[in-house]
Design a protein around this nucleic acid. Structure first.
Lengths: 252, 252
DNA sequence: TTCGTATAAAATATCACAAATAACATATCA
DNA sequence: TGATATGTTATTTGTGATATTTTATACGAA
């Protein structure tokens, strides 16, 4: 792993519901803790959730290799639940089967970057427009609160940065109200995560997000202007892809 | 299963590359048989491919229950590769974990139908526009050939119908050139498949597709008119969802 | 020194089986 | 008769063992 000395492997507490009610298919009882369906959480899901978090916050870098035994040791389970979690990540494009029975984070490839950019812009902008059309004032207040909290935190580590960015985006997409598209966006972000690692740990460790685009999205949503919200989102997404694009074209 | 007496479980030959070169990430050596990477295909992938086909051609109906042991017996493997294939289908939304340790095809729900419709229209129309912008004349000739072949076949079974429809669509989306979006569309069709079962085996066993929209897509593409192609595609997709929508609202 | 072959090590894929869990059937009680 | 308790059965989930494949290493021959 490329982060042995930089960040801890994410240790989400097992009782943590992650993004809470950001999900568009959140249970109706979501507002009352403990009143969701009583359902055991199996090891496979627990392992997957942790790997998912790790991917989305950029714990893995493009080209990294993974190994079922090491992961099983780390999670203190047998190989099977790890394998099932990992197979799912392969299906979602976050990992590939590399030659030699290896599991690998897809290496940096310009064609893939372009493809992912296109997919993210196409789908996330669609869902942003949907969110603008559906948003109630309290939804936007919540987005504003997430932004305010992000701004008030200081100093910012890359993890803090990425976590609040992710929270903003997924709250927004949750408002869009499409569980199907929300899930698809999650899989896109799983693929995107290693590129975030590249930006924050290789390209420019001092880079910090500007919240300007996020503010514009909220303002546009308050005006019911889905076109403007879309534009702000596209600008936001494009910013990081431009950095990555330049990096792939830099002679090295 | 709802089809015990209607159709055979799809038995794709193991050497069959499925849609062949329709995939946008087809190997560069695709034009020369046998010169792709030499790579063993494991049981898990074989099982998954067959289940994928089964889903897409509407072998399963909304609400069907599946069972690992039965599937393992049918595929003549142990449970493990079946389990891994099935977990993937769960991740893709084609199956859900039902209460009581069961695996279930998601039941018919209007909200889900609407969500899937929206996702399909949003994403597939985007890829259609991309395809129009990228298509070479021979690509369109190929689409035309698929259509001609579909028309010349008679009589048409639902399976023939669905297979040629699928071939048309996926060839079109492959021309779009985005492996990421292509894979997403596949997962949408996995979810859509059981609704096809409903249309062809419950709602109207005599229904047959009209190729009119497909023809319009090709004509628009020849004119380089991505807007018209988009409209034709949206009409095509909407047609079946309208039938399903009416069915869910019919008092029964 | 280079190349070919054999062997060992490492990693995944599959299998067999035990444990956990939920549903169902049956018996008992009020 | 309906409600509750208990036992049985079916199915998934997780563990550990085994099989298979790939890579690394050692050794001998040219």
């Amino acid at each position: 792993m490329s982060q042995e000395n930089a960040i801890e492997f994410p240790e989400a507490s097992f009782g943590d519901a992650g993004m809470g009610s950001a999900r568009p298919d959140a249970e109706p009882g979501g507002g009352m803790p403990g009143l969701g369906p009583a359902r055991p959480v199996n090891l496979r899901e627990l392992v997957y959730d942790q790997l998912k978090d790790a991917f989305m916050v950029g714990y893995f870098a493009p080209g990294d290799y993974l190994n079922l035994r090491e992961l099983a040791d780390r999670f203190e389970t047998s190989i099977t639940p790890v394998r099932e979690a990992v197979r799912r990540l392969v299906a979602e494009g976050a990992l590939i089967d590399a030659p030699g029975r290896a599991l690998r984070v897809p290496p940096l490839r310009r064609s893939r970057l372009i493809d992912l950019r296109q997919a993210r812009i196409g789908i996330e902008s669609m869902v942003t427009e949907m969110a603008v059309q559906r948003a109630r004032p309290q939804d936007l207040d919540k987005l504003e609160a997430i932004l305010d909290e992000a701004v008030s935190k200081s100093p910012k580590s890359p993890i803090d940065e990425l976590t609040s960015n992710r929270k903003f985006h997924f709250t927004l997409y949750g408002i869009g109200g499409s569980p199907t598209l929300f899930r698809i966006i999650e899989s896109l972000w799983l693929q995107y995560g290693p590129f975030l690692n590249l930006i924050h740990y290789t390209i420019d460790p001092n880079i910090r997000g500007s919240h300007k685009d996020h503010r514009r999205i909220i303002a546009a949503a308050r005006d019911g202007d889905s076109g403007a919200a879309r534009q702000a989102l596209v600008a936001d997404i494009s910013r990081s892809f431009d950095i990555l694009d330049a990096y792939t074209q830099k002679p090295r």
